[in-house]
């Protein structure tokens, strides 16, 4: 069965990973801009990073027969310096107009500070003005519940935001219902130790149904697995779930969500 990984950091992965993903049935990936493991020293560093995501990584991925899309944004971890972040945000419109760019992401909160909120409000404003799709990073560990509630508060206060074009990512057991109940897409990230395991993701699909749920590897430079989505698929099969249900979660849902972007072009 073919699958989509709607959140993976290809820039941090090797060609061996790309080959393994393609052999496992991956036909499309989406890469959000994120924290590359170090704080960049100058806003212009992001210009080159955005070029990497819009020029180089699509070619590298195409070598293995997979389609590539990117999201543009400044991550919450580098959002604390508001003036720095605003300089980066000023670079975004040029890249948001490029083919293969889905919208603004991953943006959100990290430690839930006031400055992070100020940067996020600027990003939400840009998205609303340009009618862009949004992909939200929710915080790690103990900060996740508070940060997710704060992000949902900000979105609820802006009537211009179309909820069906927003994904609240890295949902876990205590946040997924919050996102789904308010009409957003809920992303579940499959990590070996933090976030959710494939088994817990399957539990959440069983509890809440497959509608508006996306599963992703978010594989990056840390402990993560670029084959996490097929791992989830095998857990679902082992539990006796129908192939049609599995396909809905790993293929139909991401195609439906990503397909709302004006730059999305399905290549058969």
């Amino acid at each position: 069965m073919q699958f989509v990984d709607p959140h993976i950091h290809i820039a941090s992965r090797t060609t061996d990973d790309l080959q393994a993903m393609a052999r496992a049935g991956c036909m499309l990936v989406a890469e959000p801009a994120f924290w590359m493991g170090y704080d960049r020293s100058d806003p212009r560093s992001f210009y080159d990073y955005f070029r990497q995501l819009t020029e180089w990584e699509p070619k590298r991925t195409a070598n293995y027969g997979m389609q590539y899309y990117a999201w543009m944004g400044i991550n919450a971890k580098e959002a604390e310096n508001v003036s720095f972040a605003r300089e980066v945000i000023s670079l975004l419109p040029e890249f948001l107009d490029r083919p293969g760019v889905l919208g603004i992401g991953e943006v959100g909160l990290h430690k839930n500070t006031r400055n992070e909120v100020l940067t996020l409000l600027t990003l939400i404003e840009l998205a609303a003005q340009r009618n862009e799709q949004l992909l939200f990073h929710t915080p790690h560990l103990a900060d996740k519940y508070r940060g997710t509630r704060m992000i949902l508060d900000l979105l609820r206060a802006d009537s211009r935001i179309v909820r069906s074009r927003v994904c609240i990512d890295h949902c876990e057991e205590h946040t997924i219902r919050l996102a789904l109940d308010e009409g957003y897409w809920a992303g579940i990230t499959l990590y070996p130790t933090t976030k959710a395991t494939p088994e817990r993701a399957a539990d959440m699909v069983e509890l809440y149904g497959p509608e508006r749920i996306l599963v992703n590897s978010s594989a990056d430079w840390g402990p993560s697995d670029p084959l996490a989505v097929p791992h989830f698929m095998s857990v679902m099969r082992h539990r006796g779930h129908a192939e049609s249900l599995i396909r809905q979660v790993v293929y139909d849902n991401p195609m439906k969500f990503l397909g709302q972007s004006r730059h999305f072009r399905m290549k058969c």
């Binding site: 560990l141 704060m150 876990e172």
Partner: peptide
């Protein structure tokens, strides 16, 4: 039931509904 959800909440920081007033945003 819902042990995973309750365990997650037990391991989480509290959320305050008036955070926007506190932050002045």
């Amino acid at each position: 039931g819902h042990r995973a959800e309750r365990a997650q909440l037990a391991l989480s920081l509290n959320y305050s509904e008036d955070w926007r007033r506190i932050y002045g945003v």
